[in-house]
Computed example of a mutant assay.
Amino acid sequence: MYARSITIMGDPERLDEGIAYVRDEVMPAITALDGCVGLSMLVDSGNGECIVTSSWETEETMRASDVHLAPMRRRGGEIMGGPPEVAEWEVAVMHRAHVAPAGSCCRVTWMRLNHTDVDRGIAIYRAAMLPEMESIEGFCSASLLVDRKAGRACNTTTYDSREALEASRERSWTIRDAGIRDAGVDVLDVVECDLALAHLRLPELV
Rank of each mutant, 00 (worst) to 15 (best):
G18N: 11
G18M: 11
Y21E: 04
R23E: 12
R23L: 07
D24T: 08
E25M: 04
E25D: 10
A32I: 08
A32W: 01
A32R: 04
D34C: 06
G35I: 04
C36Q: 06
V37P: 05
S40D: 15
S40F: 10
V43F: 05
V43Q: 08
D44N: 11
G46Y: 11
G46L: 12
G46H: 13
G48L: 01
G48I: 08
E49Q: 14
E49N: 11
I51A: 03
T53D: 01
S55F: 07
W56K: 05
T58L: 01
E60Y: 08
E60I: 10
E60M: 09
E60G: 03
M62R: 01
M62D: 04
M62P: 02
A64G: 03
S65T: 10
S65Q: 05
D66C: 09
H68T: 14
H68I: 09
L69T: 14
L69A: 02
L69C: 10
A70V: 15
A70I: 15
P71D: 09
R75D: 12
G76I: 03
G76W: 05
E78N: 09
E78A: 13
E78S: 13
I79A: 00
M80R: 08
M80I: 13
G81A: 04
G82W: 06
P83G: 07
E85H: 13
V86G: 04
E90T: 08
A92L: 00
A92I: 03
V93Y: 03
H98E: 11
V99S: 10
A100W: 05
P101C: 02
G103K: 00
C105W: 12
C105S: 08
C105M: 12
C105A: 11
C105H: 14
T109A: 10
M111S: 12
R112A: 14
L113K: 08
L113M: 15
L113E: 10
H115R: 12
H115A: 06
T116Q: 08
T116H: 13
D119W: 00
R120V: 09
I124Q: 00
I124Y: 05
Y125R: 03
A127S: 12
A128D: 15
L130Y: 06
P131T: 04
P131A: 02
E134G: 07
S135H: 08
S135G: 13
S135A: 15
I136D: 04
E137Q: 10
F139R: 06
F139Q: 03
C140R: 00
S141R: 12
A142F: 12
S143T: 14
L145R: 01
D147E: 04
R148D: 06
K149G: 10
K149V: 06
A150V: 00
R152Q: 11
C154A: 07
C154G: 02
N155T: 06
N155C: 11
